[in-house]
Every structure is written in structure tokens, then in C-alpha cells.
């Protein structure tokens, strides 16, 4: 479980702001989507271990952001997922690729 102290939240909010300044129409944006089966053919999809750990961190981060800044909008939540994905998809921040100079 990630230790969510003020320094962590400061860095997280810094990343949220930095990512929001990117040229979205021309870059790849890593994100997580939740898988849902609405057919009713089987019980709800079981959580995957990595997803469970990420979900715990995500919920704790959003709760901490709400304590600090008030209610988070859907845009705030989407941006928070984006930061998590940016940090966890690869060994480097995914956004580091699009930060390179264009040709």
C-alpha cells in the first residue's frame, strides 16, 4: 500500500498538472479501464491481483485528494487514473516518450 502523506500528494498533484498540459490531440495517453460484463451470463468478473492493489491505492489517493481539495470531479478522477497509469504501465513514465522533441 502506498504511503499517502503530504509529500506524496504534492508530487501526485504536480504530475496531474503536468500531464494536463500535454498536447492531447497528438499524443498517446495511458489509462486503465475497468472491465464489466453486462450480459448476466456469469457472476461479476473476479478482481485481478494487480488490479486489486492498484484499486486500493487509487481509492486511498482519491480520498486523500478529497480531504485536501474537496469533492473530485470526473475529470479529476480521470486525471488521477492517468497519473497512476503513467507511473505504472512501464518502468519509465509513459509520458516521457511524448515529451521528446518532435522531428
Amino acid at each position: 500500500m502506498t504511503d499517502i502523506d503530504d509529500a506524496f500528494l504534492d508530487a501526485f498533484e504536480h504530475d496531474m498538472a503536468e500531464l494536463s498540459r500535454r498536447p492531447y490531440p497528438e499524443i498517446g495517453v495511458a489509462t486503465y479501464l475497468v472491465a464489466e460484463d453486462l450480459t448476466g451470463e456469469r457472476p461479476a468478473l473476479p478482481p485481478d491481483p494487480e488490479g486489486e492493489a492498484l484499486a486500493r491505492d487509487f481509492a486511498a489517493i482519491i480520498e486523500a485528494l478529497e480531504r485536501r481539495n474537496g469533492t473530485q470531479t470526473s475529470a479529476d478522477i480521470a486525471r488521477a487514473i492517468e497519473v497512476l497509469a503513467d507511473r505504472t504501465f512501464l518502468d519509465v513514465h509513459f509520458s516521457s516518450f511524448s515529451a521528446r522533441p518532435t522531428t
Partner: peptide, 23 residues
């Protein structure tokens, strides 16, 4: 807060101009 599990990894793109092909 939406549950974040089970999850899928997605990378969203829109335009992909040649000037950013290296990235």
C-alpha cells in the same frame, strides 16, 4: 469513485502525425 478492478490497459490516441513518429 469507480472501482479500478478488474482492469484493462489502454493507450488513447487521436491524431498521429509523422512529426511524432519517433515517439
Amino acid at each position: 469513485i469507480p472501482p479500478l478492478t478488474p482492469l484493462l490497459r489502454v493507450v488513447n490516441y487521436h491524431n498521429t502525425p509523422a512529426s511524432r513518429a519517433d515517439a
